[in-house]
Design a protein around this nucleic acid. Structure first.
Lengths: 192, 192
DNA sequence: CTTATTTCTTAATCTAGGTTAATGAATATG
DNA sequence: CATATTCATTAACCTAGATTAAGAAATAAG
């Protein structure tokens, strides 16, 4: 059960055998059904989850009622609202399982214990936040300075398996365009 | 010279007197002239800088030659390319002084020393990255789901002093619109 | 198997914001 | 203080992408 998450960790920092044991002991295994909402606005997010199997999306709904998808997370990715989790404030986001899924969860309390006991993990999580920051910055840049077509091409190149598992209108929302326009763009591309 | 940065730190984590001394000892004071470029694409960023006085912008130029402003940093803010700095890879960004400025710089080597000696600083920097991540996510959301007018209003509300010190076309670039359209938007708003 | 719901596509029309270009005001620079 | 450059504004026209609507295809659910 822990082999995949331990590989994930080993690629980034080095832990001793007993540190892995301590780490694994603090993880909670959990399954979610397709369509299940596992985080809602107003709730303080009390988990960061490593996805063993399945697929999630994180999204928000603005005042005008529009959904915007912010993130998809499948196997070997993490889900959770970092801001809510670490600042202990109510989330503004939804997280929903898009398939029957299986995750390993770390609670806030356990993360604190882990950070105190295993400094390398503080480093690991700092690196993960940095990566998330980098991804966000690149998306902002693309959204500001590139066309929808170019963003779509980048997306399917970078995450080729996601479009096979996620309805197209969610990808449109992730890219910041309407489903109709994505459809038109795809039609145009396939003619080329 | 160190009172402002020490206040910044004290607001977020607690250090002992001797830790402040060690920390301050690792800071390099430096001044830059207006218009000076202090980071360019291709160069590995070797600093994170706390702004004592003055103003900087971080921006990038895409393949088509368009400039996009990503960040303005005045007094009590930080500048630097986090990605390049911490992964030791060439930057893709420019950083430029927009006024005669004064900063306290931390080099990569000194940051490592500081992290090893003072664990609270690892925590401080993790919090800072998280904050930067949060800001980026909110900007992405606004860029995807709100109009230029609404983003402009948010910007001047949130950073009221910046528009007084930065040319309007850079604010347009930061908002992801053309200077002409920002001008039109402002004219429309002032009629209301 | 049948019906309901969700998903995708196409097409007509509309609009936020871009482009080009001209002009004047403000700042730099010799 | 004169000239050059950078900035901001306005206006006419253009386009990427939104909106509305309708139908077809695929999935889900009883």
């Amino acid at each position: 059960m822990f082999s995949k998450i331990n590989e994930f960790v080993a690629k980034r920092v080095s832990l001793t055998k007993s540190e892995y044991d301590y780490f694994n002991d603090k993880l909670q295994h959990k399954t979610f059904k397709k369509k299940e909402i596992i985080l809602e606005p107003g709730v303080v997010c009390n988990f960061e989850g490593y996805v063993l199997k399945g697929l999630f999306r994180m999204y928000c709904i603005n005042e005008s009622g529009n959904e915007t998808d912010l993130l998809f997370a499948s196997e070997d990715w993490w889900i959770g609202d970092l801001i809510s989790f670490s600042q202990r404030i109510p989330s503004k986001l939804y997280i929903q399982a898009l398939e029957d899924s299986e995750v390993l969860l770390i609670s806030y309390e356990n993360k604190e214990l882990l950070f105190n006991k295993i400094p390398a993990l503080e480093r690991l999580f700092r690196l993960m936040v940095q990566k998330a920051f980098e991804t966000m910055m690149n998306r902002l840049l693309a959204t500001i300075s590139e066309t929808a077509e170019s963003r779509y091409l980048q997306f399917i190149k970078r995450y080729p398996s996601i479009p096979l598992r996620v309805p197209q209108h969610m990808i449109a929302s992730y890219l910041g365009i309407t489903p109709e326009f994505l459809s038109k763009t795809r039609a145009k591309l396939s003619k080329k």
